[in-house]
Design a protein around this nucleic acid. Sequence first.
RNA 1: CGGGGCGUAGCGCAGCCUGGUAGCGCGCCUGCUUUGGGAGCAGGAUGUCGAGUGUUCAAAUCACUCCGCCCCGACCA
Length: 575
Amino acid sequence: MRYSEMFLPTVREVPSDAEVISHQLMIRAGMIRKLTSGIYSYLPLGYRVIRKLEQIIREEMNKAGAQEVFMSMVQPAELWQESGRWIHYGKELLRFRDRHDHEYCLGPTHEEVITSLVRNDIKTYRQLPRNLYQIQTKFRDEVRPRFGVMRCREFGMKDAYSFDVDEEGAEKSYEKMFNAYNNIFRRCGLKFRPVEADSGSIGGKYSHEFMVMADSGEDAMAFCEKCSYAANLEKAEVSSPERKETLEQDWLPLEEVLTPDVRTIEEVSGFLKVDPQNIVKTLIFSGDGKPYAVLIRGDKDINEIKVRNYLNIAELELASDEMIKDVTGAPRGFAGPVKIKIPVLIDYSVMGMVNFVTGANKEDAHFKNVNMGRDFKAEAFADFRVVTENDQCPRCGGDIKLARGIEVGHVFKLGTKYSKAMKAVFLDKDGQEKIMIMGCYGIGIGRTVAAAIEQNNDANGIVWPMPLAPYQVIITPVNVNEASLTETAESLYQAMTAEGIDVIYDDRDERAGVKFKDADLIGIPLRITVGRKDLAEGRVELKIRKTGEVRLCPLDDIVKQVKEMIRQDMDFNIS
RNA sequence: CGGGGCGUAGCGCAGCCUGGUAGCGCGCCUGCUUUGGGAGCAGGAUGUCGAGUGUUCAAAUCACUCCGCCCCGACCA
């Protein structure tokens, strides 16, 4: 492609509304433009990267035995009513009516559609297993779109769905996708890791998220330094402690103390001169409308997802002031487990604590020397805590470390959640009707591209890994008004194009500096500079974007060399 | 949904408080010079000042309403 003919509007200034580096660079490099909040247009350069990624995904999915389909983005309400998600999905599901007043939604995902497709045409175990995937635009009406293409409302996604006759088969399907995902992200040249994850509202038994390591990532994860354990912070387990009993002779008499307007752990700690480790925090939650108290050591944080999962309820939120007043008889800040009449869940961190401080369920009062067993019953002990750095690994006891990442892929074991609700059944060998076992597997396309930029950039712009690079080579004649330079550049361009290399020929009448800056910004891995001095000696300059390394190459060898370098960089990630 | 901020040329912003000629930088167009890391000089084009209503002789500026966008929080595959 000739640069002079391209629609490639690069921008020198950093756009004011772009927070993260990938967003800034995608706009500056002329990859994307915002249409409206959370909705973007991809320009030619951006779309080429998307296509490169999609190609890698297609290759690996096909290799894993999946088949590509293409399903509508517009979906009828009936299907969602059948699965039950018309009610449960919430406001992220964009709903609308057509001229006949029929209800529809824009698909945020396609479990309903694929299940309806499969149940109509798969009737016997002979037609199973199957794995179908598509690359489609999804729409989720995000509360707050942000970070450019990383968290937007309309986005490209590869979603695959597997259907199996039994658990064992489903396990295999899952495994295949897990491996395919590893291949995909490795081929993209990304530093990533699969982590155990909570399966959220899509449902299902367990799942892995594929996280691209990035400090700007929205997700936090915990991983073990010693073994391979890695989990989303939402899911990361705390190893259950040895059962510890406290000794009755250590218990001091319960004492009520006046604590006027002292509410938070810091305030209590400061006022009573007690370490947060000797205070027990009591949080009142509303779970599907009913109150629960959760106890945790003062210096720790509660992981609401663990509480929700433990109670097996749909919604959990901190209780309102009214509910707190109602169940504790006191305003917010003075709740405690003593004589409270609602279920009390206790985090492991409280185990073994003696003579601790809690709220007194009375305005401006706390208890000192509270002891479990005497002052309240110890029931429902479990892990309700957010993992912290240097906790012990639940698998091997090693040190837990925290890191941030961008979730680019997610593999789920769905089980029969949708097949059951929507009656996706088949006849087995014995003529018995059985429910299909499903799995679903997503990859965020735009997000993966953004993640790649987060990991591969420098002060001058993007540094594309070869497999994702929109173009592999850019040829830059230093001055297009010198015929010898343009003739050489032109013939190199022709030769490389003929060799199947993705190449930009920067034939613009611009100063060399401008072209260099643009080439760096848009991140082309290899740059060939055709200048007068080197050309006089029959050579051109080859600059490697990633390392900054510059080589002088004889003209008659450059195409071969470039081809070899590309081959190596396309291959280096494949094991 | 709660809190905060912004909306003026393609982009980034000033002007608004204290009402009266709409400005700066970058970009864009023309010409000359320049030509290995975002050139110099000269000339030029470009605005329903987010929309509406009101106050006023007069509104980018004051008031009210609406819309859009961004940030923090809550929420979340």
